[in-house]
Structure formats: structure tokens, C-alpha cells
């Protein structure tokens, strides 16, 4: 890879109990690019994504092996401060999950738990995060109303703003548009394009057109293995592996 690497994974393996979910994943994720992970359901792409902020730690019986270097530092090491890691590596979930609090309090949640109390500073952070998530204009007059009154697409962008408010370096997205209508999806994809200027983005999607539209690099997962990883253009026009071609042309999956 001829680009600066943000996350360098070597031989990552994950077990759930005695079942191996990921086999020897090695992948280098470039800085300030969008990397898409595609593959059929259960192929391990979400499991891999959740390694990158150690959310798999929360699954009882899950074990992870290998090394994942974020800016040269192994985040799988037991010495890693998981709380700090998750501040640096934000995550947006498949099903938007704003807290039952106001729009403002949702975005201010992260900064607050990290110790920011100053009201003016918080207001600044909230506005900035909402602007970056291109939601500010829609919600600036209703910051005090409940986040759950927003539309689905707005709630998902709110979750992105909430993740951005703690100033992460990497943003993980787990099928962020799978429950959105086409218009909201289009807005979200535009937003992802804008965000990559500042953040390194890894997005899991089962929508291949979406991967083709938004990403610079694409990795194809199948049965817990990374079958192929290359520039998105290459993957979608001249994949090296037959399995990849079969999947992207819709012959299975």
C-alpha cells in the first residue's frame, strides 16, 4: 500500500467459545480514506469491525489473538486503556441508538464523561459536532427536545455527531444505512465522503453499490476469512479472486 497506514492488522483471530469466527485477518487500513468491508451475513465483517475498538471484549467467551496496531501501538495488548481506545476509535451502530435524552445531551454525552464541564465549551463542541455531521441546520432550534423525536436518518446522523464530539481519529460504521430510506441513505453517503477528510473511516455494509459509491478500499470477507482486499475500483472491476467476483456479481450471498 502506497498510502499512510492508520491501522495495521496482523493475523487477527477471534473465537466465540470454541467456535472460530475470524481466521488470520491481515489488513492495512489507510489514513483518511473510507475502507468498506463487504461479504454475506455471518462472514465476520462486523466481528472484525468490533475488534478495532475492542467491543468484542463485552461478548462473554470472546477471545482475540494477533496484533492490531493503531498508529504503531498494539491495541490488543492487555495494557491498552480500552476506555481511551474507544474515545479514539468511535463507532456508529447499525440500529441508531440515541439515548433517551435531549439532542444536546446526546452530543454532549461523550465530552461530559471525559470530564468537560464548562457550559460554553460544551455548547461549542456540540455545535461543531452537529455541523460536521451536517445536522446542525435541522436541529439548531430544537437542541432541548428529545433526540427520539427526530427522524431515523436524523437520529443516525445524531449518533455520528455524538461519536465525533469526542474527537476520534477513526470512525467505525456497522451497516449505518441498512435501516434508512433511500433519501436518508444518500445524505449519509454524502456525509461519509465529507468526513474522510478528517477521519479514517471503516464501514461494514452488505450493500455492494454503497461500498462502490463511498469507499476507496474494499475488503471482501467470506466464512471468517479476508478473501481479497484492494482498491475499491479494482475489486469491482477486476477482482483477483473468483469468489470475490462471484459475490459482487450477485452469484451468491
Amino acid at each position: 500500500m502506497d498510502e499512510p497506514v492508520r491501522i495495521d492488522c496482523q493475523n487477527v483471530e477471534v473465537w466465540y467459545g470454541s467456535k472460530q469466527a475470524l481466521h488470520g485477518i491481515s489488513i492495512r487500513i489507510p489514513s483518511n480514506r473510507v475502507t468498506a468491508l463487504i461479504g454475506p451475513s455471518g462472514c465476520g465483517k462486523s466481528t472484525f469491525l468490533r475488534c478495532l475498538n475492542r467491543m468484542n471484549d463485552l461478548v462473554p467467551g470472546a477471545r482475540t489473538r494477533g496484533s492490531i496496531l493503531l498508529d504503531g501501538e498494539d491495541i490488543l495488548s492487555p495494557a491498552t486503556d480500552v476506555v481511551d481506545l474507544r474515545r479514539r476509535v468511535g463507532m456508529v451502530f447499525q440500529r441508531w441508538n440515541p439515548f433517551p435524552k435531549s439532542v444536546f445531551d446526546n452530543v454532549a454525552y461523550g465530552p461530559r464523561i471525559h470530564g468537560i464541564r464548562d457550559k460554553a465549551r460544551l455548547a461549542e463542541i456540540v455545535e461543531d459536532a452537529l455541523r460536521k455531521a451536517s445536522l446542525w441546520d435541522e436541529v439548531k432550534d430544537r437542541l432541548r427536545s428529545s433526540a427520539l423525536e427526530l427522524s431515523g436518518g436524523q437520529q443516525q446522523r445524531l449518533c455520528i455527531a455524538r461519536a465525533l464530539a469526542v474527537e476520534p481519529e477513526v470512525l467505525l460504521m456497522d451497516e449505518p444505512a441498512s435501516a434508512l430510506d433511500p433519501i436518508s441513505t444518500a445524505r449519509l453517503e454524502d456525509l461519509i465522503g465529507e468526513l474522510k477528510e478528517r477521519y479514517t473511516i471503516v464501514i461494514v455494509t452488505h450493500n455492494m453499490q454503497q461500498a462502490a459509491r463511498v469507499s476507496d478500499y474494499t475488503g471482501f470477507f467470506y466464512m471468517g476469512r479476508l478473501v481479497e482486499y484492494d482498491r475499491t475500483q479494482t475489486i469491482f472491476t477486476s477482482p483477483a479472486q473468483e469468489q470475490t467476483e462471484a459475490y459482487i456479481t450477485g452469484r451468491f450471498g
Binding site: N53, G90, F93, N97, P98, F99, P100, I113, R162
Partner: peptide, 25 residues
């Protein structure tokens, strides 16, 4: 909902912070 806990933890909350701020209320 579990999603509240996950959301809080993914933002770098400690377990106790997640319990206090999004689970207990």
C-alpha cells in the same frame, strides 16, 4: 435496551459511567 450500554461504552464510558448515566435513569 442493550444499545444504550453499547452506545455509552463505545464513546469511552467506563462501565460505571454507563450504568449511572444511561442504564439507571
Amino acid at each position: 435496551p442493550r444499545a444504550y450500554r453499547d452506545g455509552a461504552l463505545a464513546l469511552g464510558a467506563t462501565r460505571w459511567q454507563a450504568v449511572r448515566t444511561v442504564v439507571l435513569p
